[in-house]
Design a protein around this nucleic acid. Structure first.
Lengths: 142, 142
DNA sequence: ATGCATGCAAAGCATTTGCAATCAA
DNA sequence: TTGATTGCAAATGCTTTGCATGCAT
C-alpha cells in the first residue's frame, strides 16, 4: 500500500532533496488517491500550509514526480493537465464525464488483451492510456 | 470510402458555408488520412495555396470539424493538440512514439471488449481513447 | 560548504476572442 | 441582402525559464 514514506524514499533514492514543498505536494496527492487533480488545485491546497509556495515550484516538482513515476499526467482537450498518484498493484483506467469531469474507475485494462499482438510491431511499449468519455447521470439530467 | 464530397456535404447539412479555407483544410486532412497532424502543420499546408489564411481560421474550423465529427482531436503531454480525419468503418487506435511522434495503427479496439461492462455504470458513453506509448526502432537506435 | 530547490518576475507558446471587413448563399 | 466567416491584432491562460536567495545534506 502506497504511503508517504515510500514516496519520500523514492525521492531520496533518485537523489532529490526532501523539502517542505515536496512533502506537502505528496500529502495532497495521497489525499486524492484514485482521483485526478490539477496543478492549480495542488497549488491551492499546498498554499494553505505553505503560503509562500510558488506555482513554478508546483510545476517543477510535478515534472520530477512524473519522471520518477510517482504520478501520472493526463491531458485532455480544453482542460488543464491533471495528475494522479501511481498506486502499484492498483492499476486502473477511467470513465470521464465531458461535462463536469466526474470520474469513475474501471478495472478492466485493454492492455492485457492487446500486449501480445503489439509485440510483433517495431515499438517498445512504455505506457498506455485508455479513457472513456461520456456524461454522468447528474449532467444528463440538467 | 471517405472523400471530399462527403465532407463537404456534412458541412452543408449542418448549415455551415463552403469556403476556400474549409475546402483547403479538408484537402489537407484527406492527404493525411490515418495520420495525426497538428494545427500548425495544417496552417502551413493551407497557406501554400491560400497565403492570407489566418491561424484563428484554422482553429475555428478545426473546432467546428470536431463538433460535427469530421475529425478527432487528441491531446498529449507537452505536445500540441493533434487531429485526424474520422474515417467511418476504419475505426482504429494508435501506437505513438514518445520521441519522434511516429505512429502505427492498431485495429484492435478495447472498447468492443469493455462496452458491456460499462453499461452498468451511471455513464452514457460518447467516445473513447486508447493509446500506447513507447519508442520506435529508429529512436531506440539513437 | 555545496549545489539543489525555491520564489519571483518575466517570457513562451498554443489557443481564443472582439471587431470590422468580406464573402457564400 | 444578410448573417456566417474571415483576417487582424490583442488577450488569455497554462506552463516554463532565468536568476538571485535560501535551504537540505
Amino acid at each position: 500500500m502506497i504511503n508517504k514514506d515510500i514516496l519520500q524514499n523514492k525521492l531520496k533514492d533518485k537523489g532529490f532533496k526532501i523539502t517542505d514543498q515536496r512533502l506537502a505536494i505528496i500529502d495532497v496527492l495521497l489525499e486524492h488517491k484514485n482521483h485526478f487533480i490539477s496543478a492549480e488545485e495542488i497549488y491551492k491546497k499546498v498554499s494553505v500550509n505553505l503560503p509562500k509556495t510558488n506555482f513554478s515550484t508546483i510545476y517543477r516538482n510535478l515534472e520530477i514526480f512524473e519522471e520518477i513515476d510517482i504520478i501520472h499526467k493526463t491531458t485532455l482537450s480544453g482542460i488543464t493537465a491533471i495528475y494522479e498518484l501511481i498506486c502499484n498493484n492498483e492499476h486502473h483506467h477511467h470513465i470521464i464525464c465531458k461535462n463536469c469531469g466526474k470520474t469513475e474507475i474501471i478495472d478492466f485494462c485493454p492492455f492485457d488483451h492487446i500486449k501480445s499482438q503489439i509485440n510483433k510491431k517495431s515499438f517498445v511499449l512504455t505506457g498506455h492510456k485508455f479513457e472513456l468519455y461520456g456524461y454522468c447521470n447528474r449532467c444528463l439530467k440538467k
